[in-house]
Structures are given as structure tokens and as C-alpha cells.
């Protein structure tokens, strides 16, 4: 919190609660408003975890085929960016698994990294190749078949997989602006966030550079979320970088460990849950985040 501007968004003495630790690589943070509990994953530890305030942590799915990003669809079903399965999969209300995306034009996709749902029910996910190359995160098939690393969209009926953006080196975090007129996607190799205008049909327009992350500390552009005033929260060197809607950095929230992703949570969506490599932290902010909306209320 190096500049006073950020005190507009978070108090200097905001709490820093560690609600889980002992992970090898935390990711996939997600608040369930319906269940009032928090989900996340340990990629290397091959587990989807769940935490309920006052009750503690429990294993939700293990093994998880190294699940990565999580979100809910409009019906409240858990959607998983399946890192090592090289698929996007859905957990039905009865616990069974449905695969939503596995191949594009007949070729296996890379390794879905993070995932977000638009209010019309369309699913967008980044398809970086990390599970094909990263030590400790390997898929069963390590071959990259697609000659690009892109962003895909699954149509609201779940039937159509289309390529939305293809010119990334390593696409990772993605989030919509509050009005969903822009989609932000970052690139972990280039440490930039780009913004794309979203068309009525769900495709996107030409990219514009929204923000380049600066800092010499450990940390890269990874998880990314947006608050209801359009501020963009993105992991980066030294912690979580907060960027205003014009693309200017407001400040940073520092964490004691390498941050990987974050999610808004609690009833007022003013808690910020942050996964790091080894832990999950929770702090409080002043402006609510964009909720993960499911039918029957956020």
C-alpha cells in the first residue's frame, strides 16, 4: 500500500487472515454465495478444497486431474478449468462430471487455466500450455497440438466452442468489466493486461494495452478480478496490483507469499480471498467486487 490513493479501496489496517496453509500451489479461488463457503484448488496437490467460515477446510474433489481456475455457471454448477485433463468440465448438482470443451477443430486444447462466465451464460477461458511444460503439473498427454495459446468461448448452451483471441504468449487471468463491455485478459510472460471490446455476439474486437505490470519482486500477472467500480485487481510482482478503470495503477496490496489468484466473497462481496502458492488469505476492501451470480440470487 504505497500510495494513499489505495486507501480509497482498502484500509491501511485491513485484516489479513490466513484461512488455509500447507498447499503446494494454491489457485482457483471462488466464493459460493449459495453455500456461503469458499472454494479453491491446490494444483500440484491435485485437490479442490472448500472452506466454511466457522467450520474449516475439507476436501471437495481429490484427485482433481489438477484442476485450476474455478467459477460457477448461472445455474450454480461448478465449472473447472481442467489443467491436466486439458478440458473444461462441470460438476453437476448430483456430483457427476460433464466435459464441456476438450478439442478445437479436432485438436486437443492446451491446458485451461482460468475461467469466467458472462451474464448471458457464455463461458470464457484462457488456454495456456502450462500443464504441458511446468514441472509438477503434468498432464497425461504433454503434446501441444494447437499452434497458439488463446482464449476460448463456450456458447451459453454449452455446444459451441469458438476461438476468441489467439495472439497470447501465456494467457492467464481474465475478467469482465462491470458492464461487460470489455474483457480484460492478462499474459503471464509479458506481464501485461490487455482489454478487448466485447461484441453482442460474444466475440471481441481489437486489443488495446490496458496496463503493464511493474515491479522487481517475485510475482507475475496471474489471477485477475474486477470490482463494481471497474478497478482491476491483478496479481503481479510483490502482491496484488490495483489498477483504475483508466489503466493507471492505484497501488499494491502486499502479501507474505507469491500470490496466484483472488476472488470476491462473503455476503457483501467486500472480502478479498487471495490464493498464494502455499496459503489462502482473506482481507476486507471498501468497494464490493463483481459478484459471481447464480440463479436464485448472488
Amino acid at each position: 500500500m504505497e500510495r494513499p490513493d489505495i486507501e480509497r479501496l482498502i484500509a491501511r489496517d485491513a485484516p489479513m487472515d490466513r484461512i488455509a496453509h500447507g498447499l503446494t500451489f494454491g489457485e482457483g479461488p471462488l466464493w459460493s454465495a449459495r453455500e456461503k463457503c469458499f472454494y479453491w484448488v491446490d494444483i500440484v496437490g491435485d485437490t479442490i478444497w472448500r472452506w466454511k467460515p466457522g467450520r474449516g477446510c475439507e476436501v471437495f474433489i481429490r484427485p482433481s486431474n489438477k484442476a485450476n481456475g474455478l467459477t460457477f455457471d448461472r445455474k450454480g454448477r461448478l465449472l473447472v478449468a481442467g489443467w491436466s485433463s486439458r478440458t473444461v468440465w462441470r460438476v453437476e448438482h448430483d456430483g457427476s462430471i460433464t466435459t464441456l470443451a476438450a478439442r478445437y477443430e479436432g485438436k486437443k486444447i492446451n491446458s485451461p487455466n482460468d475461467i469466467v462466465v458472462k451474464s448471458d451464460g457464455a463461458i470464457y477461458f484462457t488456454d495456456s500450455p502450462g500443464a504441458l511444460y511446468n514441472v509438477g503439473m503434468q498432464a497425461e498427454d504433454l503434446q501441444q497440438y494447437l499452434p497458439f495459446q488463446g482464449v476460448f468461448r463456450i456458447s451459453p448452451d454449452g455446444k459451441q466452442l469458438s476461438l476468441v483471441i489467439e495472439d497470447f504468449v501465456y494467457p492467464n487471468g481474465l475478467a469482465f468489466a462491470p458492464d461487460e463491455k470489455a474483457l480484460y485478459v492478462n499474459d503471464s510472460r509479458l506481464n501485461v493486461i490487455r482489454a478487448f471490446d466485447v461484441t453482442a455476439g460474444g466475440s471481441v474486437g481489437a486489443p488495446r494495452l490496458f496496463h503493464k505490470l511493474e515491479g522487481s519482486e517475485e510475482g507475475v500477472a496471474d489471477g485477475m478480478k474486477v470490482d463494481t467500480q471497474g478497478n482491476v485487481y491483478c496479481t503481479g510482482p510483490g502482491g496484488v496490483h490495483v489498477i483504475d478503470p483508466a489503466g493507471k495503477r492505484v497501488g499494491r496490496i502486499k502479501f507474505p507469499d507469491h500470490c496466484t489468484n483472488m476472488a470476491w466473497g462473503d455476503d457483501d462481496w467486500r472480502s478479498l480471498y487471495v490464493t498464494t502458492r502455499t496459503s489462502v488469505y482473506r482481507t476486507r476492501v471498501k468497494i464490493p467486487g463483481v459478484p459471481v451470480v447464480t440463479e436464485g440470487g448472488a
Binding site: 511444460y133 514441472v135 503434468q138 498427454d141 504433454l142
Partner: peptide, 16 residues
């Protein structure tokens, strides 16, 4: 680059 021995299989896949 990934600290492992892999097998490039005849079907075009690659296995750890």
C-alpha cells in the same frame, strides 16, 4: 525445460 524424460509416441502424443 520440464526436468523429465518423455516419450514421443507414434500417434503424435507425448507421454511422461
Amino acid at each position: 525445460g520440464s526436468r523429465r524424460i518423455i516419450e514421443f509416441r507414434p500417434d503424435g502424443s507425448t507421454a511422461p
